[in-house]
Structures are given as structure tokens and as C-alpha cells.
Amino acid sequence: MVGYEKGAEVHLSQTEFVLAGAVAGIVSRFISQPLDVLKVKFQLQVEPIKTNRFSKYHAVGQAFRTIWKEEGLRALWLGHNPGQLLSISYGAVNFTSFEFFTKVSQQHLSIPRSPQSNFLCGMASGTLATTVSYPFDVLRTRFIAQGAKNVTSNSYRSMLGGLLKMIKKEGVRAPFKGLLPALMQGAPLIGVSFTTHSFVKSVLDRYESMSKGSNRLNLSGNMIAGGAAGFVSKTAIYPLDLIRRRMQFQGFQDARIGYGKNFTCWGLVHCVRVTVAEEGVRGLFKGYIPSAVKTTISTSLYFTAYEQTCDLIGLLHDLHVSD
């Protein structure tokens, strides 16, 4: 039921779509946060992701154990609070705007649902959601980067304090550092994600074991479609995700004590050039494995939680009507 569909069984208000999107974001963020921490740690590491005396992290399992041992279990949820606000705001704006755009395209522009319309509506909703929620993304990256035990004059103690310190030190544009690669990544990411989800959904609709009828998937069908959407979309644009993280971190290097060499760049193109020059083309894919696993799981949960919440709200509507 992702996206407005004529003849669909469940008809929810915009407020209810916001609620469903927010719930989807909360659930997926909490479960996938440790993998996100691993990904960011890898992305910010200039040293090779392999075993040598200079690299702090060189494998997923080793990184997981090192973070747990040195910083404690809570370190695997660093940046969780801004991450949750990111997921809530992003999920609410993303799904609500996607529902709105698909409804407008069908009802007012007479454009039928298709992979092309899903892609365009997904790009529009992704752009809007990324821009609105972006400051939370920058805060999340910096909380992860500074670690759980680094306490310096530059480290952040709270979200509000971190935001104010960031703006005071780096200017009002600081909360939007890396927005350009984020938008370059985010719009295609959501477009490919919704398109892949719709395509896999149309395939699974043919199998009675995956479908509930009336253009609806059951739980296992939603998990498969959502997982495929996450894997395909993340793989397509991963280098932009790495560049975004590194740009978000500029001006905050002093808080990353004990994690190896710091990376410095002055813009999107320069960031790409320096990364490739110092680390090779493979450097653009640092952290890909935990990222791919995390995105597959989180997107699967995202779509599933969204549709299950919509189903629950629809059920409550039916119970209210029957009363």
C-alpha cells in the first residue's frame, strides 16, 4: 500500500500517514543503529580497512568487539537520539509526501502508477525529507565520530548543545554540511527504493503465499520487497554516502582523538579527489558491508512497519465503524 492507489482497501488521513511513517522510522532505526555506528566508523577511517598496525578497525567483527571493549555496549547506539529524530522526521515527511505526490499524479495529472511515476514521486519525496531532517544527520555522525569516552572542549554533550556549538564555531550553514551529496544520493536512493519495492511487490503479488489480495503483501512479502529495495538502492549510490559523512565531519576533527588520521577536504569534488588519491577507488566503498546489511535490514523493517501500522490503523477504523 506504499503510495496512493485507486481502489485500495485502506484510506488513511495525512496525519495517519505521518504516524505510520514515524513508527516505521523509530523501529528500523533502533534495530539497525549498531550497524550504522560500524559503517560511520569505517567511513571516517583514512587508514586501510585491513589488518595492519595503523588501522584501528579492519573487519566488521573486530570493529564490533573493539567498540564494545573500549567504549562499552552503549557506544553501539551512539547518535541514537538524533538518529531517532532523523528517522521520525524523515520517515514522516518521506511517506506522507510520497502518498501526496502519487495521489496528485493520479487524481489531478491523470498519470497512472508505473515504475517511472514511482521513481519521480520517490525522488521528490526523498529530496524534501532529506532537507528537512538533515541537521539531525550531521549531529548523529558527529556523536558517533567523537566516541563514547572522548571528553574535550570540542566534544558534544547533548543535541541542543552540539547544535549551538556547531553554529557558533562553524556558522549557520554547518548543520547542512554535505547536503549536496546527500541530495544527490537521497533523491535517487528513494526513487530506486520505491521503484524496486513496487517491482518486487508486483512479482510477489503473483504468489498466493506472499499476498493478502487487493494489491497487498503479507509480512514475509513486505520483508522481502523492503530488503531488496534497500540493498539495490544503497549499492547504487554508496560513494555519495561516504563523501557526505566526510563532509559532515569537517570542522569537528579535534573531537576524534585516538581514532587515527583525520580527513580534510573543501567541498564535494575535492573530497572525492582526496579520497581516491590517498585511499584508491576502493576507499569510496569503505564501510560498504555493514552499510549494505544495515540498509537491507532497516529498509525491510521500514516498509514492513509502515504497512503493518497502516493495516493496524485501518483495523481500528473498521472496529470504530462496527461500533
Rank of each mutant, 00 (worst) to 15 (best):
V2H: 00
V2S: 00
G3M: 00
G3F: 00
E9F: 00
E9Q: 07
T15Q: 06
A24V: 08
S28T: 14
F30T: 13
I31Q: 05
Q33R: 06
L35W: 09
D36V: 15
V37Q: 07
K39Q: 15
Q43T: 11
L44Q: 13
V46T: 15
S55K: 06
Y57S: 05
F64R: 08
R65E: 13
T66K: 12
W68R: 14
E71D: 13
E71C: 06
L73F: 14
A75D: 07
L76N: 09
N81R: 11
L85Q: 11
L85A: 11
N94G: 08
F98L: 11
F100E: 10
F101W: 12
H108Y: 13
I111W: 12
R113G: 07
S114Q: 06
N118D: 15
A124M: 14
G126N: 09
G126V: 07
T127V: 07
T131S: 13
F136H: 04
R140E: 14
T141W: 04
K149S: 13
N150D: 12
T152D: 06
S153Y: 11
S155K: 06
Y156R: 03
R157P: 01
L160A: 13
L163D: 03
K165Y: 02
I167N: 02
G171W: 06
V172A: 12
R173C: 03
R173D: 04
P175V: 05
F176D: 02
F176L: 01
L180S: 07
P181M: 06
P181Y: 05
A182S: 13
M184T: 04
A187I: 04
L189Y: 12
I190R: 08
I190M: 13
V192T: 10
S193L: 09
V200L: 11
K201W: 01
K201Y: 03
S202A: 12
S202L: 02
Y207H: 11
E208W: 04
M210R: 03
M210K: 06
K212P: 01
S214N: 14
S214G: 02
N215Y: 11
L217N: 10
A225H: 03
A229M: 04
G230Q: 02
K234M: 10
I243P: 00
R244Y: 02
R245H: 10
R246C: 03
Q248P: 01
G251E: 02
Q253G: 01
A255E: 08
I257F: 00
I257T: 05
K261L: 07
T264M: 01
W266E: 10
V269F: 11
V269S: 05
C271N: 02
C271Q: 04
V274K: 13
V274R: 12
A277V: 03
E279R: 08
A292K: 02
T299C: 10
L301Q: 05
Y302T: 12
Y302Q: 15
T304R: 06
E307L: 12
L312F: 14
I313V: 11
L315S: 11
L319C: 03
V321H: 08
S322I: 12
D323A: 03
